[in-house]
């Protein structure tokens, strides 16, 4: 396997310039030693990773490995217990999602973060509504409707009616709305937490094309998905997250689905064996 195991300290690699605009050595996003616990649960224990300019980085790992938690820390939703985040080489502290968004980070959350009772166009502008009337912040409904319609047309997402409540949409349509919201404005880093879950084949290919289109324009992004076929199609590089740490960092070109699968299976076997040993030790 040409992919190398990441050493415990510092996953930093030289910028490999894999993306179209990856000419500098400074990655667009770098996180160092990010840890996070929720009560007794340790979700992340010192994650290091970097995202180069124009690169699509894939995160894979078991359920509960900490992928979503990492995304929610990068986008300002959670505060890390320790660790540092660098955006274009400068250290940043995001106090809120809004704060991170102002710095150019936008997210498609695993739970989509849509409001079922609101129409599609309001969901597309949730948290970033267009307003008039100064401090009164009255809604520019017509503008939001028009822009939503135009944008969904542009990216060829077919939605029956922009005024329809999200509640009446299918799972795939909802996902498309969530992806559309995050990709509508220009961002430096796009975080996509399972943007293909709940999608049928047709809808998946639509979102995959959308992501590829963004990648072709040099959009840097982190994508999470459990489907290796999709990941190999979309990503330039893959990081495997295991129990809250990045355990493997490899370029897609240097590996294969079979190789990664057998790696995951061997890791799984190792866990099972250690688990058994621990059990039998406890039994003594």
């Amino acid at each position: 396997m040409s992919a190398h195991e990441v050493p415990a300290e510092g996953a930093t690699q030289p910028g490999d310039g894999s993306g179209p605009s990856g000419n500098g050595t400074e990655p667009i996003l770098r996180v160092e030693g990010i840890s996070k616990r929720f009560g007794a649960v340790v979700a992340l224990r010192g994650v290091d990773l970097q995202l180069n300019a124009g690169e699509v980085l894939g995160l894979v790992g078991d359920n509960g490995a900490g992928k979503s938690t990492l995304v929610k820390i990068i986008c300002g939703f959670h505060q890390p217990d320790s660790g540092r985040i660098f955006l274009e080489g400068r250290q940043v502290h995001f106090r809120s999602v809004e704060d991170a968004r102002h710095h150019g980070i936008d997210t498609v959350y695993q739970d989509l973060a849509l409001v079922p009772q609101l129409p599609i166009y309001y969901n597309l502008f949730l948290g970033r509504e267009l307003t008039f009337g100064g401090p009164l912040r009255l809604l520019s409904q017509h503008r939001m409707r028009r822009l939503s319609e135009r944008y969904l047309d542009d990216i060829q997402v077919s939605i029956p009616d922009i005024n329809a409540e999200v509640e009446t949409l299918s799972g795939g349509q909802r996902q498309a709305v969530a992806v559309a919201r995050a990709t509508r404005s220009q961002v430096k880093v796009l975080l996509l937490d399972e943007p293909l879950a709940a999608m049928g084949a047709k809808e998946s290919s639509l979102i995959i094309d959308l992501i590829k289109g963004l990648a072709a324009r040099g959009q840097a992004m982190i994508v999470i998905d459990h489907n290796y076929t999709h990941m190999f199609e979309l990503c330039d590089r893959l990081n495997i997250i295991e129990q809250g740490v990045v355990s493997l960092d490899t370029k897609v070109a240097d590996t294969s689905i079979e190789e990664l699968t057998s790696y995951m299976v061997s890791q799984y076997r190792k866990q099972v064996t250690t688990g058994r040993e621990e059990l039998s030790e406890a039994g003594r």
Binding site: K72, F77, V97, D111, A113, V115, Q117, L126, R181
Partner: peptide
């Protein structure tokens, strides 16, 4: 409508 989702969207 969706307390967690609204917060995630920046509300």
């Amino acid at each position: 409508g969706n307390l967690v989702g609204a917060a995630e969207a920046g509300v």
